[in-house]
Design a protein around this nucleic acid. Structure first.
Lengths: 351, 351
DNA sequence: CTGAAAGCGCTAACAA
DNA sequence: TTGTTAGCGCTTTCAG
């Protein structure tokens, strides 16, 4: 059955709809309708086409399809990095939700760098993504307001995009930061240091506000330090604090990165938690429940956040009429373990 | 020049090459050549086209491009899950390497399930991926040998695909498993239990062989148990072992999942490491260096593995002539911390 | 219900 | 060097 012309791979060529139609003895249009499932096709015809499809191993070419329909069925997912349990969980949830509706995400990483972000978004746009879910490196960046980006739905999570015109899925950062600090206050602490990085990020700002509000209500002076994320900066700040006349007796850390470095410094210096310094961090850290003592943290509902982001995007993709933009604010959860000073039952769970 | 039909969004429409050419006053072909950068274009012409591009905010449509050239510039990345530090690092390395060559990965997750894997690959194929990097759920699965998949380069990592026709990037599983067991032997252990899940995975089999070889050389009977990954199975096996007349004094765990569950069980039962049972696991675990004692592990060079996988794929994508298929076997590293019984210097690092 | 025909935006000959 | 032309594989009118 092979032709004898010296084109060995020729018969391995990927089958097209035309071939399916030909094999089924129908027109191109009919085959198309049968496969995409809309439009009427007689039962018998459908069956013949089905057979032809599986006989040929036909798979629709999404490139051609997208070119024609102007819908690629791919969604851009723009994040700083995977790594932490929070982002990994979000990504999985998003991927899962999108996938059930026939969309597939392309994940790109920005390292939290605005320039990289702009470039990666550009790349996604060339691939004609139908929508985008993003953790913006800087919600005020100009490239987020390009004309092209305005034509597709964009939803942010973890960090909002400033200015209207974008949805965002966030947590109640201020409220839960405040709750964490109040918890420390409840343990009788008077000098509570708040440490963090990335002052410019809105969610970080909200957390700082929560800290300030709690301290203010307790009529206690804030002890706040925002440092650069460079190596050693956090440790240096801690050293300065603990060398001071009135060192903090408790520490509230503003995000995962800060918590990791803070804890590292504390452990290296043999500073005991919660005796010398109690600790609560915003965000779960990888090994938080397994340290000694287990770390008390404000934990974000990562899966819910991811699902909500995907759902919002999907809704917009479906919507025929304009939907109002809004910022969804989910509840986080203060998970009490041992580092805040509360008794801990000692049951370790590693997974 | 516009028609007067009521199509209000018409002027927001995304610009095409035709418009660029028109604005620059050149032919379509010239514009194409100017943008894709190959073929000759006069300096001045090029400049005019450049200006038109930026004035219009033109971005090439990769769908159309791909349809024509039969190259989508997207690579499928098929993995069971992100989550562990190993996979996250591999993914980042792959993404980075691919990106420098203009490729973009689409990541899909299989949960280690063959059926999901088949379905996701099908999806990727519709999007006309140019190549695929995969951690196969089952390297013998039929769907990996479909005609369509044979037409694009596929490289596996972490687990090989059986039968020739595929590259794989692996580590020297047998050798390093053996080294780990030898280390335990060196501490004087006679009864070393080896525990794990997923017997069918080739890399696991290699590790088991390493264990057996080490025990055999030491003229000691193997104490091997492969259980299902279901909840409690591992803990049950450990209970059985420790309740026996001759309980193991050391444990070698075959992968990350097993290590996590084993450690959890050990800690819950208050079994002290390394006094009651020494421990070494294959694969880094999330909190390994921070537990008490820090866990000794065989650690795979994740970034290198990812880079090697991407490089191999890229090479194949570029190659005009057939490259031989091979299985690259990288070195892992036995990282000595405290759980094996070695003294540990006590410096904790959390990142 | 079905077939024919017209492109989607781009690249790759081919002429000029 | 540059312009013209013919599709890539598919969906979508529009007639039949």
């Amino acid at each position: 059955m092979r032709s004898l012309t010296p084109t060995p791979r020729e018969n391995h060529v990927v089958p097209t709809l035309v071939q399916v139609a030909r094999l089924a003895g129908v027109g191109l249009g009919t085959a198309s309708r049968a496969i995409s499932g809309d439009g009427y096709v007689k039962k018998g015809t459908l069956e013949r086409i089905r057979r032809a499809v599986s006989q040929l191993g036909y798979q629709p070419n999404e490139l051609a399809r997208g070119l024609k329909t102007k819908r690629s069925n791919v969604i851009g997912l723009v994040i700083p990095d995977i790594g932490g349990p929070f982002m990994a969980t979000c990504v999985r949830a998003i991927q899962r939700s999108l996938r059930t509706k026939g969309y597939i995400p392309i994940i790109v990483f920005t390292d939290g760098d605005e320039a990289v972000e702009a470039q990666e978004i550009d790349f996604l746009l060339r691939h004609r993504i139908d929508g985008m879910i993003i953790v913006p490196a800087n919600g005020e960046a100009e490239h987020l307001h390009s004309a092209r980006l305005k034509q597709i739905p964009v939803v942010a999570f973890d960090q909002p995009i400033q200015n209207a015109g974008f949805d965002a899925i966030l947590v109640k950062n201020r409220q839960f930061a405040r709750e964490a600090v109040n918890h420390l206050l409840g343990h009788g602490h008077k000098r509570i240091g708040c440490i963090g990085v990335f002052r410019h990020l809105p969610s970080i700002q909200r957390r700082i506000e929560g800290y300030r509000a709690a301290m203010k209500q307790a009529k206690l002076p804030p002890l706040l330090s925002i440092v650069s994320p460079n190596d050693g900066e956090i440790a240096g700040q801690l050293d300065a604090w603990f060398a001071s006349a009135e060192p903090p007796t408790a520490i509230f850390s503003l995000n995962e990165l800060t918590s990791t470095q803070t804890l590292e410094a504390l452990l290296e210096r043999g500073i005991r938690m919660p005796e010398t310094a109690a600790f609560i961090g915003f965000d779960e850290i990888q090994f938080g429940p397994f340290l000694n003592p287990p770390i008390t943290s404000v934990i974000q509902p990562a899966a819910e956040i991811g699902e909500a982001a995907a759902k919002r995007l999907l809704d917009r993709l479906d919507a025929t009429n304009a939907l109002p933009y809004n910022h969804l604010q989910l509840d986080a959860k203060l998970v009490i373990r041992g580092s805040c000073g509360c008794p801990f039952d000692g049951t370790l769970r590693l997974s």
